[in-house]
Amino acid sequence: MVKRDNAGDLVGLLTVKDQDLAASWITEVSGSLGGRISRAEVERELRELYEALVDALRQGASDVHAESMSEVRALLTELSRNRARQNFSPSETAISVFALKRVLEPSLEGGSAEAVRAYLQLARLLDGLGLFTIETYTQTRDELITAQAEQLLELSTPVVRLWDGVIAVPLVGTLDSARTQVVMEKLLQALVDTGSEQAIIDITGVPAVDTQVAQHLLKTIVAARLMGAECTVSGISPQIAQTIVALGIEFDDIVTKASLADALKLALRRSGVDLVAHQGVQR
């Protein structure tokens, strides 16, 4: 906390020409954002922040984490999260705080020693607020990236209903532990939702399988069996077959087929569907 007389200097620094300072701050920040946010929106954000900062300083706050700075932190959190969602950079986000230091600099020309000390103290506080803004921005970006990765994982692991009682999971791309866990969850849920008794895991589009992924696939098949469904693995390439043999992974009595078509034929026969080949009729 700052002494009351110092707090008065800080408040005075911001309120002597508060309307001019706020307007200059808004102009500075608006220009740095390249018109991607309307000036009206920037003005709303910064005027609320300006008023909250002055109020906190009146209460003697000089620390970012002071209780009297709670409103300032809340407004900066909202601003940082909005900038992260709008794909602004960390620098473009932090400028919303640091620009206030620049617009205060002209007021120091010919100023007293007390005014300079007040500016330096306020600059340190704004530095702390800028770092808080960047930290919040980074956290929000990490959350967004994680959420997008989860959504892509869901989209890249579809469960397809091929026939009554027959579902398939066509996998494309690299398999890792996280993705194979999603495969298990989605496959088991689809078995419940559709009442299917036949499931096909097609790995035609999978370039490689390691020990951990193979073990996850085996667990998925065992879990499906516990739910009364039979699983068939299709599309095992020569490279993957060699890897499985080299790793000593035992597929035991798990049925494998070279192609999805072969696996579907087997699943249909298991379901009691008679397959009849029809020759074309010549006209």
Rank of each mutant, 00 (worst) to 15 (best):
G205M: 10
V54W: 06
N87H: 08
L247Y: 09
R4H: 10
S24R: 11
G248E: 07
Q189I: 08
V276I: 13
Q181F: 12
D253H: 08
V103W: 08
R179H: 15
T77H: 01
R141K: 12
R102G: 14
E43V: 04
Q282A: 10
L266E: 14
P90R: 07
L131V: 15
D202V: 05
S196Y: 02
D55C: 14
R141C: 08
V16Q: 15
A52I: 14
D252M: 11
L144T: 09
P170R: 09
T146Q: 00
A241H: 01
A74F: 01
L188Q: 03
E28M: 12
H216I: 15
D63M: 02
T174A: 02
A40V: 05
L218G: 11
N6R: 02
Q86K: 00
L125T: 07
P106T: 15
M1C: 01
E43G: 08
T133W: 09
Q181D: 13
C231K: 05
E154Q: 12
L152K: 13
A7S: 07
R102P: 09
Q242K: 09
D5C: 04
S89C: 15
S107W: 10
L260Y: 13
G228E: 11
L79T: 06
M184W: 07
A246T: 09
A147H: 04
T204F: 10
I236Y: 10
E230M: 12
L129N: 14
S91F: 09
A214W: 02
E114D: 08
E154A: 13
T138D: 06
R58D: 01
D253V: 05
L108S: 15
T138L: 05
A66P: 00
T77D: 00
T194C: 01
L175W: 06
D176I: 08
T194S: 04
D20T: 13
E51Q: 12
A241P: 01
F132Y: 12
Y137I: 06
K3E: 06
E48Y: 09
G235W: 07
S68V: 06
L46C: 11
L125E: 03
L247M: 14
Q239W: 07
Q215P: 09
T77S: 00
A267H: 10
T256F: 08
V160M: 08
A84Y: 01
D176F: 04
T180Q: 08
I26L: 09
E150G: 03
Y119H: 15
D210W: 00
L171A: 03
T220K: 02
A178I: 06
I249Q: 10
I244S: 03
V42H: 01
G228H: 02
D202K: 07
V273Q: 06
V2T: 03
V233A: 06
V166S: 08
Y50L: 12
A52K: 11
D63I: 00
